[in-house]
């Protein structure tokens, strides 16, 4: 189920980038795309009825049904990168606004 939600979010993000003409909205769409992607990554590691992948005194054997921990680690990195890109995008959006006085791509008068 989670996968479908993630794919819908990714599609939504792509749709936003494809149709929106506003710089901020495009950045938001990028974010949606990334969130969808992150969800998808986490969902890959999901195991139905699985345990948290931590050895404890109760769960001290490898035979137990752990969820995959790797995607969770990947997602952390991906989120950080996404935040960095968003921050940079917003900074550029600010310079765009300073230069053109608008956020709308169609009103900038530059090919």
């Amino acid at each position: 189920m989670l996968q479908y939600a993630a794919i819908v979010l990714i599609m939504l993000g792509l749709y936003g980038i494809l149709t929106k003409r506003n710089v901020i909205k495009i950045i938001v769409s990028l974010n949606i795309l990334e969130i969808g992607l992150n969800l998808f990554i986490v969902s890959v590691g999901f195991v139905d009825g699985g345990l948290a992948p931590i050895f404890t005194s109760q769960n001290a054997t490898n035979d137990l049904n752990f969820v995959d921990p790797l995607p969770q680690a990947l997602v952390l990195t991906a989120i950080v990168i996404g935040v960095g890109t968003t921050a940079l995008g917003l900074a550029i959006a600010k310079t765009i606004y300073a230069k053109y006085g608008t956020f709308n791509l169609d009103e900038m008068g530059e090919k």
Partner: peptide, 9 residues
Amino acid sequence: PLATFNYLV
């Protein structure tokens, strides 16, 4: 900035 934004997206 617009070209950079384009590149970034």
